[in-house]
Write a protein that binds this DNA or RNA. Structure first.
Length: 719
DNA sequence: TCTCCCGATAAC
DNA sequence: TTATCGGGAGAT
């Protein structure tokens, strides 16, 4: 009797055997419904074996082998196994984080093959339409020839509804989809730098990792589009990863416009379950030519993968911060190597890990030195020294003057402050009391409009205390600057100006962010106040001033990655200024104008910054010169968490190539009433660290940690 | 003696 | 993770 070895979505690092008469190797990669304990689960067949792995247990039969989905191909199974091993995560859970949630349900999931649509009688259809219905008439003309769903949707948002209606009326019929690539719309001519980059990418044979470095406006997207066009012409598929959901609709629009008629699948957490599952199936069947998505898209099966692109590769959102803590960028590199295809990592400010790989010759650096739009000027940077200066509620007179200037010229200004709320804390000037979260080791942020104090870490909320709990003083003041306060201040200062604040609080409602972007584009805003929400990827042609407030906090942080992040963030937000032919100006208010980070930014010299930063990391023994992993634990008390970690350290295998540090309280020690601590492990050898972790996790899983929740984070971004 | 809650344990 | 089992504490 053959046995199916299944990966099940349970936190156990092992597979489970079930028997199935006349099963053969073709079952591998299919879903199976089984009874597990007392419940029914859907598992993934990983192996078919002649005998059970464990002779001592009674083996249940498979209830059903589902044949509804494309079989998970060997390369994806290998990829998932790699993730399970590398991140020390149970394979069953890896499988289920990698697949659309819909596939965890027992019901079969069927997707009709993608097809094209064509008018039964194009002339009759056109004749039946009113003269004024221009969209309908346009569609009718298109439908004389077979059109893909993507092509029709690209024509207009309401096109698909019309097509459905005509289909129901029998005006249209479904025809087989042609996989031949329609001619892409020609893009703008490439400048020499872009052309060289495209050539390097498309001419590389087999696996090659290209680090595409170019500031905002240097035309990285155009390089991607050209490289993808070449791949599509060879009948291959492209995988494109972007950091944020916010950015996908924009980019998707650009892709659809450039590749009309090409099936493009968009995969991210904002896509409804069913649509995600359908997109996955289309990609896996080879019907979709382009998969565009956030980190979860990295696991999509692509039988004819020809190119991988990771845009803004330095972005922290490529690293999942819970469950399977994978780095989609690193997994993407693995995938490209596996498929022996080129991968492009694009960024203006590459992660120092990637930069280091380029220095070492493992990645090929492609630089885009020029701005793509001829005549566009790079922004001019200016540091506004604020030490011992009088500031009007945090804004320097020079900054205010610059804003006034834009107002007079009818241009837009952006004040960038990465701190939402009114003020970061409520303060008693009598006794020095600060409002703190009772559940976290964090301050409560002041939200003036609602007159509430909020914890931005756990979501705790309370009303303003009527008097200081420390001394009874009733005169408590918000301390420091937040975006709300800045908004209030600027509205007072410039009563004639239209001020718009963009942060997670003001953009909570669905669609409000899109609406805000529209307002900005329509020129109905004079002064924008924004957090990092606004820093990424959006073009504002009328924006000519970016003023940065409160950046200094990233300079002297305990986190060794803080300056890297600060540089990236400032470079990114500066890119919002002056994208059209109006030169942009960037002002940074700082107490430390002489700081090398700012000096490198002013000189637009990331190479210098990276070299300095890497030298420091080498000296201090930080990544990328070492590989790290963190074992985190949380419990009701710090003592329990620490005790667990001490036990864990005692269980650690001995390896002179691996350093195991003492347990310490986490930097945010208390979070939502749980106390947290961690152990850092590092090694100069990735292989040794991996082997060490495998042994350690095996030993640790054999222990039962009653009240402690723990997890391992390999290549952590934050310690 | 009954019931509820918590911790331990198994899951193929 | 989910589901069940059993022991102990307090209620009836």
């Amino acid at each position: 009797m053959p046995y199916l070895r299944l990966a099940l979505d349970v936190p156990l690092a092992r597979l489970f055997d079930y028997e199935l008469a006349d099963a053969d190797a073709s079952a591998v990669g299919k879903r199976a419904v089984v009874s597990f304990g007392r419940r029914a689960l859907v598992g993934m067949v990983i192996e078919v074996a002649d005998s059970p792995a464990d002779a001592g247990v009674a083996i249940k039969p498979v209830e059903a082998l589902l044949d509804d989905l494309p079989t998970l191909p060997a390369d994806i199974l290998d990829l998932l196994q790699f993730c399970a091993d590398y991140y020390q995560h149970p394979l069953g859970q890896v499988v289920h984080t990698a697949l659309p949630g819909r596939f965890r349900e027992i019901a079969p999931y069927r997707v009709a093959p993608a097809c094209a649509y064509q008018a039964v009688d194009a002339d009759a259809l056109l004749g039946s339409l009113p003269k004024r219905a221009s969209l309908q008439r346009r569609l009718a003309v298109m439908l004389a020839e077979p059109c893909s769903e993507a092509q029709l949707r690209a024509e207009s948002g309401s096109a698909w509804r019309l097509v459905q209606a005509w289909l129901a009326q029998g005006q249209l019929r479904q025809v087989a989809l042609s996989l031949a690539l329609p001619q892409p719309v020609a893009g703008p001519a490439l400048n020499p730098g872009q052309a060289a980059a495209v050539a390097a990418i498309t001419q590389s044979a087999g696996f090659a990792c290209h680090l595409l470095c170019g500031i905002t406006g240097s035309g990285k997207t155009e390089v991607y589009l050209h490289a993808i066009a070449e791949v599509l012409q060879r009948g291959l598929q492209a995988l494109v990863l972007v950091p944020e959901i916010n950015l996908t609709p924009q980019l998707e629009g650009r892709f659809r416009q450039r590749f009309p008629g090409v099936e493009i699948v968009s995969l991210h957490s904002g896509v409804a379950d069913g649509e995600r599952a359908t997109g996955w199936v289309r990609a896996a069947r080879g019907e979709a030519a382009i998969v565009l998505g956030t980190r979860l898209a990295v696991f999509t099966p692509l039988p004819r993968l020809g190119l991988v692109v990771v845009d803004e590769e330095h972005d922290a959102s490529f690293k999942q911060q819970e469950g399977l803590r994978y780095s989609a960028r690193d997994v993407a590199v693995y995938r490209a190597r596996q498929a022996q295809v080129a991968i492009v990592l694009g960024s203006a400010t590459p992660a120092l890990e990637s930069w280091y790989n380029a220095e070492a010759g493992r990645y090929k650096r492609l630089a885009l030195p020029q701005r793509a739009v001829a005549g566009a000027q790079p922004p001019s940077w200016q540091l506004v020294p604020t030490r011992r200066q009088h500031l009007a509620d945090g804004l320097h007179a020079h900054t205010l003057g610059a804003i006034e200037n834009r107002l007079a010229r009818g241009e837009q200004s952006l004040i960038f402050l990465n701190r939402r709320g009114y003020a970061p804390v409520m303060h008693c000037s009598e006794c020095g009391w600060l409002a703190a979260c009772t559940r976290c080791s964090a301050r409560l942020t002041v939200h003036m409009r609602e007159r509430r104090l909020r914890c931005h870490h756990c979501g705790w909320e309370e009303r303003f205390p009527p008097a200081c709990p420390g001394c009874g003083n009733s005169d408590m003041k918000p301390l420091g600057q937040g975006t709300q306060r800045l908004e209030e201040l600027l509205a007072q200062r410039f009563p004639q100006a239209r001020v718009l604040r963009i942060d997670r609080d003001s953009m909570r409602r669905k669609g409000s962010f899109e609406a805000a972007l529209k307002t900005i584009h329509a020129g109905e805003v004079d002064i924008l106040i924004g957090t990092q929400m606004l820093a990424k990827g959006h073009d504002f042609p009328a924006l000519t001033l970016v003023a940065v407030i409160g950046a200094d906090s990233g300079l002297y942080s305990a986190d060794f990655r803080a300056s890297e992040r600060l540089y990236a963030q400032l470079a990114q937000v500066a890119g919002r200024a002056g994208r059209a032919n109006k030169p942009g100006e960037v002002l940074i208010q700082t107490d430390f104008p002489e700081h090398p980070l700012y000096q490198a930014l002013l000189a637009d010299n990331y190479a210098d910054f990276a070299a300095t930063e890497l030298a420091e990391r080498k000296l201090a023994g930080f990544p990328p010169y070492l590989y790290q992993a963190v074992l985190r634990a949380e419990a009701d008390t710090l003592a329990e968490a620490m005790q667990f970690l001490q036990g864990a350290v005692a269980l650690a295998p001995l390896d002179e190539a691996v350093t195991v540090w003492d347990p310490v309280a986490a930097s945010m020690m208390r979070l939502a009433n749980r106390e947290r601590a961690q152990v850092l492990v590092q090694s100069g050898s990735r292989a040794r660290l991996g082997a060490f972790l495998a042994g350690w996790m095996q030993a640790l899983r054999a222990e039962r940690a009653a009240k402690v929740r723990w997890s391992l984070d390999v290549d952590p971004l934050e310690l």
